[in-house]
Computed example of a mutant assay.
Amino acid sequence: MFVVSLNYKVPLTEIDRLQAAHVEWLKACYADGIFVASGPKKPRTGGIIIAQCPREVLDARLAADPFAMANAADYEVIEFLARMTTAGLDTFREA
């Protein structure tokens, strides 16, 4: 499983211009079963994505994010093993 931390590199006006395309990209990643959760940071300096897929799939998807294509955000990818989960997230637990 991966935690992806996005950090905006451009003013929020540029992020807002790209937001609709970014949301459509997110929806496609959810539909394909790649993303588990996502949302903006507070304060709004970037976002967080939780993903479960092979690393090469994640890297390809992140490269297709409209924020990445516009060089509007940097991405930090952290891999971890979800050894414990709350009830309802048992399917994400890893051995």
Rank of each mutant, 00 (worst) to 15 (best):
M1Q: 06
M1V: 07
V3H: 03
V4W: 06
Y8R: 00
Y8K: 00
K9G: 06
V10K: 03
V10M: 00
P11V: 02
P11M: 03
P11W: 00
L12V: 01
L12W: 03
T13L: 05
T13H: 04
E14N: 09
I15N: 01
D16S: 09
D16L: 07
R17P: 02
Q19D: 10
A20P: 00
A20Q: 08
A20G: 01
A21V: 00
H22T: 00
H22F: 00
H22W: 01
W25I: 04
L26Y: 07
L26K: 12
K27W: 05
A28F: 08
C29S: 10
C29F: 02
Y30P: 06
A31Y: 08
A31R: 11
A31D: 14
D32Y: 02
G33T: 05
G33N: 01
I34D: 04
I34A: 07
I34C: 07
F35G: 09
F35V: 08
V36T: 11
V36E: 02
V36K: 06
S38T: 10
S38M: 08
S38R: 06
G39K: 10
G39E: 12
G39L: 12
P40C: 12
P40L: 13
R44D: 11
T45I: 15
T45F: 11
T45D: 12
G46P: 07
I50E: 06
I50D: 06
I50R: 08
I50S: 08
A51P: 02
C53I: 05
C53N: 08
P54Q: 11
P54V: 12
R55I: 10
R55M: 13
E56I: 14
V57C: 07
D59G: 13
D59M: 15
R61E: 10
L62D: 10
L62R: 07
A63C: 07
A63W: 02
A63Y: 02
A63F: 01
A64K: 11
D65V: 00
F67V: 05
A68Q: 07
A68M: 07
M69R: 13
A70Q: 02
N71R: 14
A72F: 02
A73R: 03
A73H: 02
D74L: 09
D74A: 12
D74Q: 09
D74G: 07
Y75V: 01
Y75C: 03
Y75E: 05
E76I: 15
E76Q: 15
I78P: 06
I78C: 13
I78T: 15
E79W: 14
F80W: 11
A82W: 14
R83C: 01
M84Y: 08
M84A: 13
M84N: 09
T85L: 01
T85F: 03
T85G: 02
T85A: 03
T86S: 15
G88P: 03
L89Q: 05
L89K: 04
L89W: 09
L89R: 05
D90T: 11
T91Q: 15
R93C: 04
A95F: 07
A95M: 08
A95Y: 04
A95N: 06
